[in-house]
Amino acid sequence: MRKLRNLLISLLLMLGIGLYILPVMAEGNHVEDEAGLLDDYHLQQLEDYAIRVESAHDCGVYVRFINSYSSFASSIGQASEYIYNSENLGTGSDHNGILLLVSMSEGQYDLCAHGDTANTAFTDHAKARMAKRVENLLSNEDWYLASSEFISLSDSMLTYLEAHGEPFDTNNDPQYQYRREEAEAASRTMKIGATFGLPPLAGLLTCLGLKARNKNTGIQTEAHNYFARNGINFNRAQDLFINRTVMRTPLPRSTSSGRGGGTTINSGGFSHHSGSFRH
């Protein structure tokens, strides 16, 4: 009995230590808040949620709030890749995972996916849809809700891939299809407008040009014909340098599918969607 009791106590202790240690380890891995935006309780909630999603899909889901990406790299996309690599994030041999990086000083965020599963599930369109919802919450400074929404959407995208055998993309997003039809209708309206609007405009301009030929009188406003020989003498020319400014603009991303779907993956195996949540 004593042996059994000692064994049970040992098991309980090990379980207790394990339960205590596991979240601590996960805290450093899935959700981190360098900017101090989340309290411990919410941080723990998010951490647990991220672990559950990771376990369900074998794909890491990470959130990082940092003070400024400039401590890591020159752009938020590069900072995401740096953090992802340096912290050895992701699951499996190809480090599957998706990271939401939020940089407070610049008011920018980046969704960064890596690995076959993540890059398949998180297409450019999927990331754009996720970003739109997360961005709204970040703009409202709902840091917890934004993180929770990100994890939830990541779960949805991964679930969609598993359930349908294809990722959530432009070809199966009803909202996108509707918008595409709307855009096509708008484009057609514009073409009809151009077809019936531009020729009268061109006709009018041509007629005005031809009419102008019938009148070539007018008051002279220049005296270029009357410069004295060697009469132009500009002897003062100073170009004073004041300062230099640098502006960084994310390049528009190309898509891998002719229909506007797919995922654009860079040479490092990452795909991104960046944006600003302060407008």
């Binding site: 752009s75 996309g77 590069q78 170009d239 004073l240 340098f241 640098v246 960084r248 603009t249 960046s274």
Partner: peptide
């Protein structure tokens, strides 16, 4: 530079 377009602008005052 990477996924960004970096535009450097030099400002001058000319006399």
């Amino acid at each position: 530079q990477g996924d960004d377009l970096v535009t450097t602008t030099e400002h001058y005052r000319l006399l």
